[in-house]
Amino acid sequence: MKFEEFAYGNTWVHHLDPRIKIVTAAVFSVLVALNHSLESSLISISLPLGLIFAAKLNFRALLIRLAIVNGFTLFMFIFLPFTTPGETIFTLGPLCIQREGIIQAFLITVKSNSIVLMALALLATSQIFTLVHALSHLGMPDKLVHLFFFCFRYIHVIHGEYCRLMNAMKIRGFQPKTNMHTYRSYAYLVGMMLVRSFDRSKRIVNAMKCRGFKGKFYILHHYEMKGYDYALVASSLAFSIVLLAIR
């Protein structure tokens, strides 16, 4: 499993204050999502594109991520042109392709790509733990923050356990087929992972108690806003105003 692919860079985007990154990405996503005009959507995609460029992210890895999103928007191009009422530009037997449908599908594609690009540019360029810290600094409820954090921390351990169990099955000749034996074996695998995760969570909380944990996490790193952070806040504010004005 690959995590934090983009998190270890050394550009100014990587060094931005994570609190600013989270707030900017969130505000930007809401603004873009609520936008209905194609022109302003096309303008809005330039901000994440610029940031991605500045962060010098691996282009191939980026395309793979975008391919996942655009797998979904592809369906928009398949269905919307036929189902959105509007001006017919092409007839295909009994089916009519509408201009509005194509514009609608294009709009959705631009909007979803710019939100994902923004998340990749700002959120993926921080390590998960930095984001977790930033979330707690931003006043997110402790329980949610802890949940997010422990999910990430132990996903490796659980994945490791999954691989070990899977290997144990394979070396005893297990080959998945479409039959009851396969379903039952997979069910055992999932069940075993659940039980083990539960046991592990109990051991972890015990280990934490032994080190004086009383329900509160203390934060070692504190953040400080620097020049680039103010610049990002200013430019995204200006950007938002432009977007709202065009609307």
């Binding site: 972890i204 015990n206 934490m208 004086g212």
Partner: peptide, 20 residues
């Protein structure tokens, strides 16, 4: 793996002292 739950070593080792 039960004992080390923080992502980085510094945070994990600091966890106990901070709790104290």
């Amino acid at each position: 793996d039960d004992q080390l739950f923080c992502p980085t070593v510094i945070e994990d080792v600091a966890f106990g002292p901070l709790n104290l």
